[in-house]
Design a protein around this nucleic acid. Structure first.
Lengths: 336, 336
DNA sequence: ACTTGGCACTCAGGAACATAGAGTGCCAGC
DNA sequence: GCTGGCACTCTATGTTCCTGAGTGCCAAGT
């Protein structure tokens, strides 16, 4: 149906259109890609490709432009991910290595990715639910007030002030803290609720109300999905590209929920996900594509990151950058 | 020099231009603002106002548009801050009251402000340097590794992992923790360095290297100006307004340093600061104005917030919103 | 059965030109 | 010092025309 040459033509159309941002005609194409055939032949191939829905012409007498379907084929079968240059790799490494804490890692990552791809970068904070408890701390603040601090193995810290139902001495707090840590150390956050369920029963009668209060706040913290926070950077890279509905894209970027869905479900570890134009789950983003990947330390995917740009983007390069950054961030997180 | 009526004309020009986004002519103006004089008279006044630099015409046969100087006069002498409606106040209150922690307060505030003003909102995190230490926690993570957690009276939490020069038992850590808290409780963050300066001397010889390590990390945390983080929201509100250089504005918004300068120095408590067009310290923002105010709990200003929009903005309404939000955030912070 | 050159056709985008209307500046009269 | 009248200036808009890139199709060539 689509022989070798037609695929080559499609590839050429995509590449030229991406680099020039102008509909590409048969003549220019035949010349620049020395396909060894005449423009007329290319025209015939283009007609077929158009009929099949891979390319289209903006108006009757213009060159061709890839459709979403065309980009899809290009990404799936016609292109190879382009690795970063050695210099770029070094730059990433040093830039990320300078981070002082988790917040800093995420901030640096998102900026780095935006700069590298010249597009909008999106990074999700390492998910709480997939990480494990490293330590729980109870800090007395006042007679009936303590601060609950939860530290995870990814370096993330969550804190909440807890109002206690009664005055509790430091020693009882200390006991509770020890108990909590004994049960929860290394526990996956998703398993925390079951793990602490029977904890009050193992306490003397008088400590139970206090424990219950603290536990309910602890569980609340986990449920709050504070973990699913997503940040972005590089919005300026969108300006000047009128092929995307700027306003709608900016609106989408400020909607956490939309962003989350954009980054997609966790896929195969370190597999790149590409969503092209109308494949996107949000109608405001039909002029844009998303390239995303999971990242994490070791084998478990902690969260996802990616970039968003016009459908007409350089997929091989973008995919290379996303993959590389995801890997490096994973390393950094594993190392710290 | 500028009699009452000329000022009225200027006011009318600003108001009309803000609401229509089109140069305003003498005729329309005379009608809509029943000034009691004829268009010809208005024209004369306009000529004077133009000569003085308060208004200008985009091209010879068009209406007039206020200059930055004109807006300045308008803000300073011709307008009154417009208070929010009762409904809006209630909405603010309930929306902010739902915040669970400091991070949430700031996030909600910035969104609220963006929505309220339909412009870009900018909020600075409560400054560390002006708040005080509520608690310092040292959490053992491994034999030679502890986590240092700093909690301030504004609910802010900073954490750092500290690599210790030697293995240190839990009891020694506990002792150090007690000592730290005894010295630092309630201490202004700015005064922390002096306060801990002599602390190692009060320890047994063998504890000093460890203490020194921990203290140096603690001081680093304070210096890192992590506190001066600024976030924004509502960038989508910029789209569609071509009077501002969109790209440049977006770039500015992602530069923490620029944002900080935009919000301005701490001024009189709760005084509104307005920077109009070319008054801005950053050339990319000459088409925009900033309305900012300090906020804090009680008397001390903790940080600043504001909005950024096209020079042609509704100053009275914007100023009202910024002032109101600043106050409410202050209350929330004081209350928690 | 493809490929190719030739050719007529289409149409977006730009240039040139005309038109309408909003707004101005100025002046003479009240 | 205000006002109506009037000539003037431009922008914005619409019309027309033209050019050129690009197409589709056909008939001839391999």
């Amino acid at each position: 149906m689509l022989d070798e040459r037609k695929l080559a033509v499609l590839r050429a159309v995509v590449e030229d259109y991406v680099s020039t941002n102008e509909p590409v005609g048969s003549k220019a194409l035949a010349e620049r890609h020395n396909l060894g055939v005449s423009p007329a032949t290319v025209r015939n191939d283009m007609a077929v490709l158009e009929e099949q829905g891979y390319i289209t012409q903006p108006h009757t007498s213009a060159g061709r432009v890839p459709t979403d379907k065309g980009y899809r084929l290009f990404v799936d079968r016609l292109s190879q991910i382009k690795p970063l240059s050695a210099a770029e790799r070094r730059a990433i490494e040093t830039f990320l290595a300078g981070a002082v804490d988790l917040d800093d890692v995420v901030t640096r990552t998102v900026r780095l990715l935006a700069q590298l791809t010249r597009q909008v970068a999106v990074v999700q904070y390492p998910s709480l639910t997939r990480s494990t408890v490293r330590h729980v701390e109870l800090v007395p603040l006042a007679e009936r007030r303590i601060m609950l601090v939860l530290i995870t193995n990814t370096g993330r810290v969550e804190q909440r002030v807890v109002e206690l139902p009664e005055v509790v001495g430091d020693d009882r707090i200390a006991h509770l803290r020890a108990l909590l840590n004994a049960s929860l150390d290394g526990c996956g956050l998703g398993r925390v609720p079951e793990t602490v369920a029977d904890l009050p029963d193992r306490l003397p009668e008088e400590d139970r109300p206090v424990a219950a209060t603290i536990l309910s706040v602890l569980l609340e913290t986990l449920v709050d999905r504070h973990d699913e926070k997503v940040i972005f950077a590089g919005a300026a890279n969108l300006a000047g590209d009128f092929s995307v509905g700027l306003r709608e894209v900016l609106e989408a970027l400020e909607e956490q929920v939309v962003l989350m869905r954009l980054l997609g479900e966790a896929g195969d570890h370190s597999a790149l996900m590409v969503r092209i134009g109308s494949e996107n789950p949000y109608s405001g983003l039909h002029g844009t594509s998303i390239v995303a990947a999971g990242y994490g330390s070791g084998d478990n995917e902690l969260a996802r990151l990616g970039v968003l740009g016009p459908t007409r983007m350089d997929y091989p390069v973008t995919m290379g950058a996303v993959r590389a950054v995801a890997r490096y961030v994973g390393q950094i997180l594993a190392g710290s």
